[in-house]
Amino acid sequence: MPAIAIVGATVLAGAELEPIDDAIVIFDEVIRAVGKKSEVVIPRDAEIIECNGRTLLPGLIDTHVHTQLHPVRRLISGGLTTVRDLGWAPDVVLPFAKRSESWGVQGPLVLAVGPIITEPDGYPTHAHWHGAQITAHQLRSASEARDIVRVLVSQGAWGIKFAVDDRRGPTLPSSVLSALIDEAHHLRKKVTAHVGTVVELKKVLDAGVDELAHMLMADERIPDELISQMVDQGVAISSSLMFRDAHDYATAIDNAARFHDRGGVLLYGTDIGNGGATPLITGPVPGVEVREFIALTQAGLEPQRALISATSAAAAWLGLEAVGQVTVGFKADLLLVRGAPHAEMKHIGNIEQVWRSGASVL
Results as ranks from 00 to 15, higher is better:
4 I>T: 15
8 G>T: 06
8 G>F: 09
11 V>G: 03
17 L>Q: 08
17 L>Y: 08
21 D>Q: 14
22 D>G: 02
28 D>M: 00
30 V>R: 15
31 I>H: 01
31 I>R: 02
31 I>P: 00
33 A>R: 08
34 V>P: 06
34 V>N: 07
36 K>I: 00
36 K>E: 14
41 V>R: 13
43 P>G: 06
45 D>Q: 13
47 E>L: 13
51 C>A: 15
53 G>S: 07
56 L>H: 07
62 D>P: 04
62 D>N: 12
62 D>C: 07
65 V>E: 05
68 Q>Y: 11
69 L>P: 02
70 H>L: 10
72 V>R: 13
74 R>L: 14
78 G>L: 10
82 T>E: 08
84 R>G: 01
87 G>K: 04
89 A>E: 14
90 P>W: 14
97 A>G: 05
100 S>A: 13
101 E>D: 06
106 Q>D: 14
106 Q>I: 00
107 G>R: 10
113 V>L: 14
115 P>V: 03
118 T>Y: 10
121 D>L: 12
140 R>V: 01
156 G>Q: 08
162 F>A: 06
164 V>A: 13
166 D>V: 01
168 R>V: 00
170 P>T: 02
173 P>I: 06
175 S>E: 15
177 L>P: 02
180 L>R: 00
183 E>V: 03
183 E>S: 03
185 H>R: 04
193 A>T: 10
196 G>Y: 10
198 V>R: 04
199 V>T: 14
203 K>N: 06
205 L>T: 00
209 V>H: 04
212 L>T: 02
216 L>E: 08
218 A>G: 03
224 D>T: 10
227 I>R: 01
228 S>C: 05
230 M>C: 08
232 D>E: 15
237 I>P: 01
247 H>S: 11
249 Y>P: 00
249 Y>S: 02
252 A>V: 07
254 D>Q: 12
265 V>M: 14
268 Y>L: 12
274 N>E: 11
276 G>A: 12
281 I>R: 12
294 I>Y: 10
294 I>R: 12
296 L>C: 05
299 A>S: 13
301 L>A: 01
307 L>H: 02
308 I>T: 10
310 A>L: 09
310 A>W: 09
310 A>R: 05
317 W>G: 00
321 E>L: 10
324 G>P: 09
329 G>C: 05
329 G>P: 01
331 K>M: 03
337 V>W: 09
339 G>Y: 11
341 P>G: 07
341 P>H: 06
343 A>E: 15
346 K>V: 12
346 K>N: 02
346 K>R: 13
346 K>M: 04
348 I>Q: 01
353 Q>A: 15
353 Q>T: 06
354 V>M: 11
355 W>C: 05
355 W>A: 01
358 G>H: 07
361 V>I: 14
